[in-house]
């Protein structure tokens, strides 16, 4: 199945019952899949919104009203959604936002890119908040992580971002869907009319500085818990590695190919693949630094995650960077050459 459609199917299986989106390449198949299938799901709503801004705000309303809700877009559209994502974080509402990244800045192009790492991992919109960021590297993982995204969003009452790129979205690979877990979301957070009880309001506006500060610290504590509990990563051929590549998503796939080639040439190289970009696997990377000196960060941008790797290492070890921005997809052979060069230099 195609990546974009897989996200849609996984979302519906996970109980997503509200989707609003706006056309933008290369994620249109997801919107179309939802148009086709969401109405089939019992109580499901699909809306083609008038803009990305409207779509995310519809999601805000739907999430508050108790639905598992999702929207999707690609880079320029995700910029537009930031206002709503910030509101979701402030209001502590669960939602899943999919970014099928393309080349930027500005309109850029429609080719696969990883230029939105900073935007995704630093909250993206205004204010002091974070979103959980999941970075799938295969179509199978698109399915699994989409399902997980809804659970994580509920568990922490926080927006969760799926950060993939045009290649992940367009590519077809075999996929198997796992059984979704049943939803655990406390009724007390759902807005549905006061009934016989006390009236509720959900809001991000807190004019009093001390109370706003309190809210900020409350969110911060939640983010600390997420940082401790939800880090995910994969390691590949790291046991005897003397050079470690750090890459995620499409870049990580390419890195695996390059590592196989390099190993054939006798270069001991391995991979750390962050699956959660926020929370970032800081400690894992730091722990590797105890025995590996050379790190090579590989991204399809001009260097964004490399800053997190440097932060993780805190000055220990050598961090090199290789990147191809703008929608260029480097080949495993190309990266293998970079690895060989690093191996000679060291």
């Amino acid at each position: 199945m195609q990546g974009n459609r897989v996200i849609g199917e996984a979302a519906i299986r996970a109980g997503c019952r509200f989707y609003a989106g706006y056309p933008i390449t290369p994620q249109n198949e997801l919107t179309e899949y939802m148009a086709d299938n969401m109405r089939r799901a019992k109580g499901g709503t699909f809306i083609q919104a008038e803009s990305e801004i409207a779509a995310i705000n519809m999601v805000l309303g739907a999430a508050a009203a108790g639905a598992r809700a999702m929207t999707s877009s690609s880079s320029p559209g995700i910029s537009l959604k930031q206002e709503g994502i910030s509101s979701l974080a402030a209001d502590e509402l669960p939602a899943v936002i999919v970014n099928i990244m393309r080349g930027g800045p500005g309109l850029g192009n429609i080719l696969p890119s990883q230029g939105d790492y900073f935007q995704a991992t630093r909250g993206g919109g205004h204010g002091d908040y974070r979103t959980i960021v999941l970075a799938p590297a295969s179509v199978q993982e698109l399915a699994d992580l989409t399902m997980d995204a809804f659970d994580l969003a509920d568990r922490y009452r926080n927006p969760v971002l799926i950060l993939a790129d045009g290649m992940m979205g367009q590519m077809m690979e075999p996929v198997e869907f796992s059984d979704p877990s049943s939803r655990q979301y406390p009724e007390c957070y759902i807005l549905k009319g006061k009934g016989k009880g006390k009236s509720k309001f959900i809001r991000g506006l807190i004019l009093d500085a001390i109370r706003m500060e309190e809210h900020n610290w409350k969110l911060y504590r939640k983010y600390q818990v997420i940082t401790q509990k939800e880090v995910r990563f994969e390691t590949f051929w790291t046991d005897d590695a003397e050079i470690l590549i750090v890459a995620y998503g499409t870049a990580a796939r390419i890195a695996k190919g390059a590592i196989k080639r390099s190993r054939e040439m006798g270069i001991p190289v391995g991979l750390i693949r962050p699956i959660t970009l926020w929370p970032f696997p800081m400690e894992v990377i730091r722990s590797f630094a105890e025995r590996v000196e050379n790190f090579l960060v590989f991204e399809m941008n001009t260097g964004q995650m490399v800053e997190d790797v440097q932060l993780a290492l805190g000055g220990i070890g050598k961090v090199q960077f290789y990147g191809r921005p703008g929608g260029v997809i480097p080949t495993p052979a190309e990266l293998a050459k970079v690895i060989a060069y690093q191996a000679r230099k060291k």
Binding site: T25, P26, I110, M167, Q170, M171, M172
Partner: peptide, 19 residues
Amino acid sequence: AHTVMNEGYHVTYLPSYGV
């Protein structure tokens, strides 16, 4: 792609898209 998948191979299919 569909056929080789049936036969148990790893497979990826990537169409051109957009403009």
